[in-house]
């Protein structure tokens, strides 16, 4: 289709190979969420991974940190068309958490304080591709951005990087989470432009 909008040329742009289709570079870090920002104290913080036997594997804040915090530099891509490149994060690899979890299930539902959920295949969380992030750009993660801890899965659209993470539940199938039930794509790969179903 050769659709054009009369008179529109857009910003003069450099070819940006790190920018997925339909994305625009931002310097700021926009905030998107569906309700009030939960206030979660690290003193009360806990992360749970529940397997198919109903067993809860738990880590408090200190236990999480003790697993080893890594420096991470990644690009992030939001479904609302902005991308932020080369962000510096610190967090704990999910590989380290899943070392302690035996499960045959291949899908995961992430649960957040405030009730948000999002679904992910386990393979998108393992192999150095996903973290529990606790710092961004040199500072503890601000509550607006999901602090004290959020999921960080930068190779998928950023709604998958659940803010205020409190637990992961293993699932036999790829059940949709919050935005996925409201029409967002079940997987959310920005390079395939998997925004909406």
């Amino acid at each position: 289709m050769s659709f054009t909008t009369r008179g529109f040329s857009g910003r003069r742009r450099q070819p940006e190979t790190r920018l997925p289709p339909g994305q625009t570079l931002v310097e700021k870090w926009p905030v998107l969420s569906a309700g009030p920002t939960p206030v979660v104290d690290t003193a009360d913080w806990e992360l749970t991974i529940q397997d198919e036997t109903g067993t809860d594997h738990r880590w408090n804040w200190d236990e999480l940190i003790a697993l080893g915090v890594e420096d991470i530099t990644v690009d992030i891509h939001c479904v609302t068309h902005w991308s932020k490149l080369g962000m510096a994060w610190r967090g704990v690899s999910l590989d380290k958490l899943f070392e302690h979890v035996g499960s045959r299930h291949q899908y995961v539902m992430a649960h957040s304080h405030g009730g948000y959920t999002t679904n992910l295949p386990l393979e998108d969380l393992l192999g150095g591709k996903a973290w529990i992030a606790i710092e961004a750009e040199g500072r503890p993660l601000h509550p607006e951005h999901g602090g004290p801890a959020r999921l960080l899965v930068p190779h998928l659209y950023f709604w998958k990087s659940a803010k205020w993470i409190r637990g992961l539940t293993m699932m036999p199938g790829n059940d949709p989470g919050f935005w996925e039930r409201y029409g967002y794509h079940i997987h959310g790969d920005p390079w395939q432009e998997q925004r909406y179903r």
């Binding site: 700021k28 926009p30 905030v31 569906a34 309700g35 068309h81 009730g115």
Partner: peptide
């Protein structure tokens, strides 16, 4: 109740 409060934001772009 936080569950009675829905939010929508603009800005950033």
């Amino acid at each position: 109740s936080a569950t009675d409060v829905l939010t929508e934001r603009f800005g950033g772009l």
